[in-house]
Design a protein around this nucleic acid. Sequence first.
DNA 1: GAGGTTCTCGTACATATGTTTACCAGCTAT
DNA 2: ATAGCTGGTAAACATATGTACGAGAACCTC
Lengths: 204, 204
Amino acid sequence: MPRTNDDVRIEIVSFLKETLDQRGYPPSIREIGAHVGLSSPASVQHHLRRLEADGLIHRDPTRSRAISLSNEPPRAIEIPLLASVGAGYSVVAETGASEMLAIPSSMIGSGDHFALQVRGDSMIDAGIFDGDYAIVHQQPDANDGDIVIATIDDQFGTIKVLRKVGNRVLLEARNRRDPNLQIPTEITQRGRVQGKVIALWRNL
Amino acid sequence: MPRTNDDVRIEIVSFLKETLDQRGYPPSIREIGAHVGLSSPASVQHHLRRLEADGLIHRDPTRSRAISLSNEPPRAIEIPLLASVGAGYSVVAETGASEMLAIPSSMIGSGDHFALQVRGDSMIDAGIFDGDYAIVHQQPDANDGDIVIATIDDQFGTIKVLRKVGNRVLLEARNRRDPNLQIPTEITQRGRVQGKVIALWRNL
DNA sequence: GAGGTTCTCGTACATATGTTTACCAGCTAT
DNA sequence: ATAGCTGGTAAACATATGTACGAGAACCTC
């Protein structure tokens, strides 16, 4: 079965994707030709022109290796996965980030974020279980009702619901079963909000 | 305050990252020079040599624009976000995928995956709420106790716990409050497993 | 101050690379 | 057959681009 022209186009796009993934910069026209079996750079250029007309690639004339794929794979950003949230506002700077967690940029907005693995069942009635990863937007305050990561007396960070009643700032758990967790904790003086939980990830 | 040499290095790396993100291929040495304020290509090359010695970048001599960053940003893959799971095993092929959801490759393994936004409170006691995104590994069967997406009589897909009791295959909800959901659904004949829920994403 | 290192510049150079042109082979339609 | 389109090769061309060399300036160490 002979190779059709569309086959060559597909091969070229695949090679482009492959090369960009492997070494980070696009191949030259002659490299493409050597890979797909075209000895003349003019032949490759002919296909490239078609591919650009079809909108599959973008090119910048008068530049070397100026080929880019139209549907580039989505980039992810890495946020630090903290073992614990210590004292101070600049959480990331002070705490040594042991691991990084990749999160698609489309899922979180701007600003500094970090991740924290939830320990304990204090938020079980909010659907946040032991072992879940909380994706946190780092901020020094939050609104009433927000789920936040907060530290009390500079202890390890806990995940709770922030309540603001008059001048008082409280942390509420979400666990009907454990009577110890029914009493809101006053953090007006002693506590500090480290960030707002904006998303949750759970591995099943 | 004068600009130190390290500042220039940082600027170069930032410019590399920026350019790679924006147009997909690295800048030339002279482009770098024009951006960071170095008029001679030799100056830029000097810094590039240092950066490569420090392991921050990789270069391929005798090639144009052959610069790549050492710590390239993690790639994400896109999985289809299905509005509903229809009949048949090849879910993706048959259902028109309206949207795509970016998921870091590190979070999911190999095989075909899709995402489904959970509707209803049938799994509320498993910490799966209305509106959550279920990340599903497409597979025709699963083990007892797994949370699966299944279709009954080729209806819309539902998320339930799979139970295997003897020869019978059941779907169990996880909702103590709703008495209608207490009765397991027999799917031995009429139902079909579309995939296993491997992860959960929730926007708060 | 002497001497070394680092950084920059300007220039020259070799070539990798995209572009163009001319030409040929195969296919299709009139 | 003739014309036209497509897609290939080869060669020539212009230049973008990485590299090397020489020199000078700034800075540190002794």
